[in-house]
Design a protein around this nucleic acid. Structure first.
Lengths: 304, 304
DNA sequence: ACCCATCCATACATATTCTTATATCAAATA
DNA sequence: TATTTGATATAAGAATATGTATGGATGGGT
């Protein structure tokens, strides 16, 4: 059942050489020496029966084999990191680092308040926040907790449904004073529109909107929702934004409020971390904080 | 960025002690000696700052900390196994082991033919086949390729859609001779019915069937679809079965053929294995074999 | 053209780690 | 009760891995 395995430490050296580009650099990073790393790579090549690097000027050049092994080795590293975090979360006290990932807008506009409150209660707690729209972070175990806008697709997760987040079209009042407030969807074609660039998921969502939107020409495109928000705030034009976020800025005006659309939001955590007090605390705080935010945006979305 | 980490090999010893229950047993399994394992555990405890085991008669007793660390350590092992499989698939020749997981019926009724043909072309190829309805196998990287009846929920997968598999009600002709052929759905209540026991996913599928089925009483229940098939073949009563599978047995009769229902089928593989010739070959063979089977069951499902 | 920095390979002395062998303990068995 | 089995702990020698020092090669800068 347990087949013979190369010493797992060899993979660590392998990954280090891969990421740092040379034996020497890898050795410095790992606190070892260049001959040691050299021997590790030799040994790994021998045991795997695969050539991993070829000498080149300025370092080692990874072979195709090494490149195709790399993602696997990174999985190993992710798992090792995970163990370490899990172990350091076993104390009875809430201390140490929790790694959270979230979409960029939520991370910048909503989480800071939640996390600040949390930290006040747990001064020994440290937070790492990784922003981005990639969903894969949690799969690769690069984070402990994820705040996401897509339905969780994994089984082994602790999932809390927050609710539907309202999105709407917004513009700065200065812009509207300049260009006028559109009265119908059709009127949007006359405006400066802020839209999605390439992101497949966002484009798919665009498809599900009323047809009138499909004819719109976006004169500014970005896949970074934060950039959208910044452009809206700068008065560039009309763009989509979370209602709850937009409502905080009195200068932003809800354009065509009858066309709000919704995305779902979730907080998820690995099941394996359920017993981890530290993660548990952050998870609960995120759930309750997000739910508060959800309630606020909900009342804000009411007609004024 | 790269924080200090305990030697990854220590986790291997940890997991071995955990699974084998004692230092000595773990040492035997790993091909090391008991004092070595003892020092590894001590060292890991020191570095993690956690007590992992307490002495007890007959071995070491894992603490709660060790138990909650266990799934993480198993992830590490799964990742290490994966590397090894990936590495051994990098030769230019198709040789070595590929691990396939599939639902039990497909695994027993459909795959043997496909895999036998495949092996004829690649004599150095070895196949491991893990049957079961759990979907999680692929997530944990316990298998290279999965043949599944549920829509793949992960991103980093190579996915091939096979098609919809027709399910229908079948019974042995002897049974029907004894108890008669039901003419309407309502007539099923008079029959010996073979149904699902507890499996939540299957029960959910039951809910989506016409209402008349909900009143049915199943006098035999099992979550093993293979058991259903065996009971049908034995003439116990009427049960659901894949049309393509049932058609192979001339003694099985399609009952109420107007009520066939469908499930989707897929073949999936890790994206990381795309460059792995060995896995690639098996993947392609499974896809083409499953599609053949799908075509056959499709024509078989036609009215006779 | 020269020098310098950076890289890898090799040889040898040193540290560390593993194994072997032995002692000790606990529980089950006769 | 004595004995056997299987467990962990410990000490010392053997095996292995690491670090240091050095040489050779390559490319960039002066």
């Amino acid at each position: 059942m347990d087949g013979y395995q190369p010493d797992w430490g060899l993979y660590r050296s392998f990954l280090a050489v891969l990421t740092h580009g040379s034996l020497s650099a890898a050795a410095r990073a790992l606190g070892l020496t260049q001959p040691t790393l050299g021997r590790h790579i030799d040994e790994l090549q021998r045991q795997l029966g695969v050539t991993l690097f070829t000498r080149s000027s300025g370092g080692l050049l990874p072979t195709d084999a090494a490149l195709s092994l790399r993602p696997h080795a990174e999985n190993l590293k992710a798992a090792a990191d995970m163990i370490l975090r899990a172990a350091s979360g076993l104390d009875e006290e809430v201390r140490g680092t929790v790694r959270v990932t979230a979409s960029d807008v939520i991370g910048v506009e909503v989480l800071p308040g939640i996390l600040t409150d949390l930290r006040r209660n747990y001064p020994d707690l440290e937070i790492e926040l990784a922003l981005g729209n990639q969903v894969e972070d949690l799969l690769r175990r690069d984070a402990d907790i994820a705040v996401r806008m897509v339905t969780p697709r994994q089984d082994a997760l602790v999932v809390q449904h927050i609710g539907e987040i309202n999105l709407g079209l917004f513009a700065h009042c200065d812009y509207l004073a300049r260009k006028g407030m559109p009265q119908h969807i059709e009127g949007l074609v006359e405006h400066d529109l802020i839209g999605i660039d390439r992101d497949p998921q966002d484009r798919r969502m665009m498809q599900s909107l009323p047809e009138a939107f499909h004819n719109c020409h976006f004169s500014f495109r970005s896949d970074q929702h934060l950039a959208h928000l910044a452009m809206i705030r700068a008065g560039y034009g009309i763009g989509a934004c979370q209602v709850g976020v937009a409502r905080r800025d009195p200068n932003l005006v809800h354009v065509l409020p009858e066309f709000s659309f919704v995305i779902d939001s979730w907080v998820t955590m690995h099941e394996d971390l359920r017993n981890n007090l530290r993660c548990r605390v952050v998870f609960d705080a995120l759930v309750s904080g997000m739910k508060d935010h959800w309630r606020i945006q909900r009342t804000a979305a009411m007609p004024i």
